[in-house]
């Protein structure tokens, strides 16, 4: 933990001002990523994971707006930067892989052209050199016959190959931080494993930090150093990966882990009921703790007040009035 801090997100708030009302997609999210570290951001669909990552890139489109907080990257607040300064950071220092490999690449330009473009934008190289680098990158991410693939269009490639191309594009300028927004969700399991392996491998080689976004806790266990669990735009539990898996304190995390029994600590013989119900509508949040309608431990106070994110163990934060303590319950 003596590592240098790379990114510190403090109390980030990103709201969408839609015709039906204000959606608080990200509402007071804070976390820290150190150099070379992998942070997992976990939560069900609609919990604001993508919006968080787009906020870091400052790519939130109208009607969304970053209304508060700080995003301190290498000691400087990204929210205070000009659009031009931000542009220079995007792609070179912070890169992003998107959720949908099918639509994230421009259909009318070749893969090679699209990767080369990033290199030409951020590095002082000529086209020939950029092309050479691109082919090397395609090789690195495991695309066979990279010279030929360079001239292929996205529609001529499979989903897995496209996602590899996206990764090649993202790492083309050796970013310090890679945001991977459910990069493998759309792929089938074997391809998913290959891509994750590739990402881990590259992360070790290049030494970049990764913000690893997923709704699959199983992947988190494999990939990350620490984990932030989000629910309705707020972090509900935040700790290093071992502690979360060994000792999940928030009922929501507990419920998520429940869906993958093999991961849950040996000691839990009596599983809690899996999470029932759905993520509440962003327009009608329940009063008090947002999780209370689905929470088996909810009490009166949960229906009145929103709990604070508190340290219940060293370096283990939980937002809950009645944190589950696995050890106690089993003994």
């Amino acid at each position: 933990m003596e590592k240098e801090v790379l990114l510190e997100v403090k109390d980030l708030r990103t709201y969408f001002y839609t015709e039906d009302g204000v959606v608080r997609a990200v509402d007071g999210v804070s976390f820290t990523i150190h150099k070379g570290e992998v942070l997992g951001l976990v939560g069900e669909s609609g919990c604001g994971k993508s919006v968080t990552s787009l906020s870091i890139m400052r790519l939130v489109d109208a009607p969304g707006k970053i209304v508060g907080g700080q995003i301190i990257f290498k000691g400087e607040d990204l929210l205070k930067k000009s659009e031009e300064e931000m542009r220079k950071i995007r792609g070179s220092e912070i890169a992003m892989i998107f959720q949908e490999p099918m639509t994230a690449l421009n259909p009318v330009y070749t893969i090679g052209d699209q990767i080369m473009e990033a290199i030409l934008t951020h590095q002082d190289v000529n086209e020939e050199e950029a092309k050479k680098q691109t082919i090397k990158l395609l090789d690195l991410v495991g695309i066979p016959d990279p010279k030929k693939r360079f001239n292929e269009y996205p529609h001529e490639m499979s989903g897995g190959m496209r996602q590899r191309a996206m990764i090649a594009m993202a790492i083309s300028c050796n970013p310090d931080l890679l945001i991977s927004d459910e990069a493998t969700t759309a792929l089938d399991v074997t391809i998913q494993a290959q891509i994750l392996e590739l990402m881990k491998d590259l992360q070790r080689k290049i030494g970049m930090a990764i913000l690893f976004i997923t709704h699959d806790l199983a992947l988190v266990a494999e990939m990350t150093d620490s984990v932030a669990v989000t629910y309705t735009g707020k972090i509900v539990e935040y700790s290093d990966v071992r502690s979360i898996f060994k000792n999940p304190h928030h009922p929501y995390t507990y419920g998520l882990l429940e869906s993958i029994p093999s991961l849950l600590s040996e000691k839990t013989k009596e599983p809690l009921p899996a999470i029932e119900g759905m993520v509440p509508s962003p327009y009608r949040m329940p009063k008090g703790c947002h999780f209370n309608p689905r929470c088996p431990f909810a009490t009166d106070i949960c229906r009145k007040e929103m709990p604070e994110l508190k340290e219940v163990e060293p370096n283990h934060l939980v937002r809950c009035f009645h944190p589950v303590n696995v050890k106690e319950e089993v003994s």
């Binding site: 790519l59 542009r87 792609g91 992003m96 934008t121 996206m166």
Partner: peptide, 9 residues
């Protein structure tokens, strides 16, 4: 969005 994320002008 991908193009913007690359930092293109």
């Amino acid at each position: 969005r991908t193009a913007r994320a690359k930092g293109l002008p």
